[in-house]
Nucleic acid binder design. Structure first.
Length: 552
RNA sequence: GCCCCGCUAGCUCAGUGGAUAGAGCAUCUGCCUUCUAAGCAGAGGGUCGGGGGUUCGAAUCCCUCGCGGGGCACCA
């Protein structure tokens, strides 16, 4: 059924046809009105059509306002200048409350995906160290994107790609080997304390490992250490309410033969060539993009070669219609290469959607003016677990989700801890808890309330304001899923919570405006509004992976 | 040098080419005997980085310059 915004837009388009516009319609820009005096929605259709119709904007707007048939009598229409303003009617808002209750947790969940089978791969960090606060951003963003997609009728598989076969993991293995023998990690190795800890665990879990030569011991230590790290990553993401369906190990690409299969296909299609003893990928038709090594001169495949087989695994073996990858922006240069690789393999590059988010830099030391890049290798980072320990999962998720992926975050741990009490997550959760509490109070004072709510009793401005916010929820979901931008949700939650707090507060000002009053019918009507608002708050918080407590 | 992202209130940030640019925090002023004050009401605070351009209309699109972040490997 879609949002009321969408339905008004359809009605407007119909009216434009009815007044005789046959050509392709320009964007009529129906969107939220900025000032409430103008209603909830406005379109600049008068200006947009002035040229086509060769009439004054005001005249066109007036004709459209007279012609338009608004669905369900949802809004009154007014032409002002060349604008057309839509004001949602109290009657429609009242009925909406009932509809929200009837829809339950699915309110706002339009079936946009029609069961589209897709994969979201996110936060696939190298298994060479624990997650730090930078990784938390991609993990939380990816998880919320999954939640929004699932909510709107997509069949989502959540995947973590474990990069297990590469130079970095070999360096990691060598670092563990060095620590096992009480030595410093080699040049370019990993120096964090956790490396020593893993070496000590290995000493206990892998009897005799110390006696082996490095070339024998390193692969064993590497695999052992990676498994330890993956276990740790699993535990960390679980604390943040993040779920994965599959942990896909890179070595499977080669063990299943998909890596070779991808290379063979590219060779036959003319995308591979030998140079300097290595094997290179390049599109003969594209001189802009540089050639890339797939097999090194020492015979080892690069991560790029693994990615080729990995593409086949996902699009052909497992049959995903679309794959969404969430990457930190330091990988952005890799996007054209992946798209080119997909195209060369015969996969539509448009089906490979890559979402980039900007970095999280660490502000450290007394001089907070100098952000420092986090580095696992150098052991310079704030672990995600520490952040969760100190402020809790809900504020962490809310903190990250509030920011558009395009904004660089400069993270200050001390500031994050001191400000955690002011985290807006509590404002939203408090609104939920207040509603839950008032519903419980109503049940105590009125054990036998009418079954049906007479929503026409909801006439106060603060009551209709809550209903108005409920009307906006479906379009927030539409935008979040269309743009794959979950940060729209916490901003909506803030608005809905504000309406709820004002509604609640009206009862503090005057006893007769409380939810629980002597009149059972009025109580019942207001209770309906409470439930509708609470359910919508809970649904929105769920999409953020944030809890909705009944008590605070 | 080339590519990507950002620059909006004191701070952190929203903002589908439309009307008077918003929120949170911070500052200041009021409001709890009551369904939860983790709340509500109000005030101050802006050359939307600079300059051009397109448009009836630009924070939003284009060009250009500046500043900050990130890339440009036989690392991932």
């Amino acid at each position: 059924m879609g949002s009321i915004r969408e339905r008004l837009a359809d009605a407007l388009a119909g009216a434009v046809r009815a007044i005789g516009v046959d050509s392709e319609l320009p964007d009529l820009e129906l969107g939220r009105a900025k000032a409430t005096e103008r209603g909830e929605y406005a379109s600049s259709a008068g200006m947009k059509l002035a040229r086509v119709l060769k009439q004054a904007p005001q005249q066109i707007a007036s004709r459209l306002a007279e012609t338009i048939v608004v669905p369900e009598g949802a809004a009154t229409v007014e032409a002002v200048g060349g604008y057309i303003n839509f004001r949602l009617t109290p009657q429609w808002l009242q009925r909406l409350v009932t509809q929200v209750i009837a829809a339950g947790p699915s309110y706002g969940s339009d079936d946009i995906g029609h069961g589209e089978r897709l994969q979201v791969e996110f936060a696939s960090i190298n298994p060479t160290g624990p997650m730090h606060i930078g990784h938390g951003r991609g993990a939380i963003l990816g998880d919320s994107i999954c939640r929004v997609l699932e909510f709107t009728g997509h069949d989502v598989q959540r995947e973590y790609y474990v990069n297990s076969d590469n130079t970095q993991t070999r360096r990691f293995g060598a670092s563990v080997y060095a620590r096992l023998h009480g030595k410093e990690p080699p040049e370019g190795g990993y120096v964090g304390d956790y490396v020593t800890e893993i070496a000590e665990m290995a000493r206990h879990d892998l009897p005799g490992i110390e006696q082996l030569l490095e070339e024998e011991a390193e692969p064993k230590l590497r695999m052992y250490a990676m498994q330890k790290i993956v276990e740790q990553i699993k535990a960390t993401v679980a604390r943040l309410n993040i779920r994965y369906d599959e942990w896909f190990w890179e070595n499977m690409v080669w063990e299943s033969g998909l890596g070779q299969q991808a290379l063979n296909r590219l060779r036959e299609a003319g995308y591979l060539k030998e140079k300097d003893g290595a094997l290179w990928f390049g599109d003969p038709a594209d001189v802009e993009e540089e050639d890339r090594v797939v097999i090194r001169s020492n015979g080892q495949p690069t991560y790029f070669a693994s990615d080729l087989g990995y593409l086949l695994s996902r699009f052909e073996v497992r049959g995903f219609k679309r794959v969404i990858e969430v990457w930190a922006s330091d990988h952005h240069g890799y996007v054209p290469r992946m798209k080119a690789a997909a195209a060369a393999l015969g996969i539509d590059p448009a089906k490979l959607v890559i979402i980039l988010h900007q970095m999280v830099n660490l502000k450290e030391g007394a001089a907070r003016s100098a952000p420092t890049k986090m580095s696992k290798r150098a052991g310079r980072f704030v672990m995600l677990d520490e952040l969760i320990d100190r402020v809790g999962s809900d504020p962490v998720r809310y903190f990250y989700l509030l920011r558009s992926p395009d904004t660089t975050i400069e993270f200050d741990l001390e500031l994050a801890v001191t400000q955690s009490n002011e985290n807006p997550v509590y404002y939203a959760q408090y609104a939920h808890a207040r509603l839950a509490n008032v519903e419980a109070t109503a049940a105590e004072k009125h054990p036998r309330l009418p079954e049906q709510a007479d929503v026409s009793l909801l006439v106060e401005s603060w009551e209709l304001d809550v209903a108005r916010q409920l009307a906006f929820w479906p379009e927030v979901v539409e935008d979040a899923v269309r743009l794959l931008e979950p940060h729209r949700i916490p901003y909506y939650v803030q608005d809905l919570a504000t309406a709820v707090h004002r509604f609640y507060h009206a009862g503090n000002e005057k006893g007769e405006h409380r939810v629980v009053v002597d009149d059972p019918n009025l109580t019942r009507a207001r209770l309906e509004l409470c439930r509708a608002a609470r359910h919508t708050l809970k649904t929105a918080l769920d999409l953020m992976g944030v809890s909705a407590p009944d008590r605070m």
